[in-house]
Computed example of a mutant assay.
Amino acid sequence: MRNTIMLFLLLLIFGCNSAPKKLPVIKNDTSVKQKVKQAESANQVLRNTSDSKVFNQCDPNCVWHYYHPFPDSTYVIAIQNCGEEYIEKEKNTRVYFGIDRGLTDKIIWTQNLYIHPNGGGTLKHEDFDGDGVEDLLIFKETGARGSNEYHYLYLIDQQKKQVTKVQGFDDVVNPSYDQKHQVILSYGFAGKNYFSVYKISNHKVFQVGESFEDDFEGDEDILDQKILKILKEEKIK
């Protein structure tokens, strides 16, 4: 029995040497499509995951990225990016949040997402709810020939050790957080460029007021006045 356990541990160590890394920005050095094509040519099959072990498994058909949202590094967000045929149509990425226990894992939740194959596979870290804690943005896709970017937003709650996806955030173009007014500011490039103001409530994003054209060349004083006007009108309602 002891020899069997030792043999299993050796196979696990040498067969899957892919320890998680804390990377603020992840570069897509190998395209997902190329990996999938190589896997298909070798007649490889996507390894099934289960609640017993998901993180750091040997998976030749997918690219895995790992992020530790809390000081307790046993908590992990794992992003599994595969070809569409391996997960669901138009959802080629699976996001896991759980606890890495070494030989076993505890999966708290898992979600399927769509990420454009040529998107670069980047993660960004920025506070989007004003609590002083960096939240996680997962790149989704671009529009307007690359000028408009869209991301999924996951709020990080350090005290409760929770990670929560913000519904509808992936429709907000080029988002940034305005600390002064505690709102999310969106800037869309089109025939005419527009600003939009958003807020988050109950883990959902909603627009405040109407979008307005950037006919003032991004002058910060004018932008500040327009945001204040929208917030004032919203309070009156």
Rank of each mutant, 00 (worst) to 15 (best):
N3H: 11
T4R: 08
I5G: 12
I5A: 13
L7A: 12
L10F: 15
L10S: 10
L12K: 05
L12E: 07
I13Q: 07
F14L: 04
G15H: 13
N17E: 15
A19C: 04
A19W: 07
P20R: 06
K21S: 10
K22I: 07
K22G: 01
P24F: 14
P24M: 11
V25L: 15
N28Y: 08
Q34H: 10
K37C: 09
Q38Y: 09
Q38D: 12
E40A: 07
A42D: 11
V45Q: 12
L46D: 08
T49C: 10
T49P: 10
D51C: 10
S52I: 10
F55N: 03
D59Y: 02
N61V: 06
Y67G: 02
T74Y: 03
T74G: 03
T74F: 03
T74H: 03
Y75P: 02
Y75F: 07
A78R: 02
A78F: 01
C82M: 04
G83A: 11
E84F: 09
I87Q: 12
E88K: 07
E88T: 14
E88R: 15
K89F: 12
E90G: 15
N92K: 08
T93S: 06
T93P: 00
G98R: 05
D100G: 01
L103N: 11
K106Y: 10
K106P: 06
I107H: 04
W109F: 07
W109V: 03
N112L: 12
L113G: 04
Y114C: 09
I115G: 02
N118F: 13
G120W: 13
L123E: 02
L123P: 00
E126Y: 15
D127G: 06
V133A: 09
D135G: 00
F139Y: 13
G143P: 01
G143F: 02
R145A: 13
R145L: 15
Y154L: 02
L155R: 04
L155C: 03
I156Y: 00
D157Y: 03
K160N: 09
Q162Y: 01
V163A: 01
K165F: 00
Q167T: 10
F169T: 04
D170N: 07
V173D: 05
P175W: 02
P175T: 04
P175R: 00
P175A: 01
S176I: 08
S176K: 08
S176N: 12
Y177C: 02
Y177T: 05
D178S: 07
Q182D: 14
Q182L: 05
V183P: 02
I184A: 00
Y187V: 02
Y187D: 00
Y187W: 11
F189M: 08
A190Y: 13
G191E: 15
G191Q: 10
K192P: 03
Y194S: 08
F195K: 01
S196I: 01
V197E: 02
V197K: 06
Y198E: 05
Y198L: 04
K199H: 13
K199C: 04
K199F: 08
I200P: 00
S201C: 08
S201F: 11
N202F: 04
H203Y: 06
V205M: 06
F206P: 02
Q207C: 05
V208L: 04
E210K: 11
D215T: 13
D215N: 10
D215L: 10
F216P: 05
F216C: 09
E217R: 13
G218S: 12
L223I: 06
Q225I: 09
K226M: 13
K226E: 13
K226F: 10
I227W: 06
L228D: 15
L228E: 11
L231D: 06
L231H: 01
L231V: 06
K232Q: 11
K232E: 11
K235A: 12
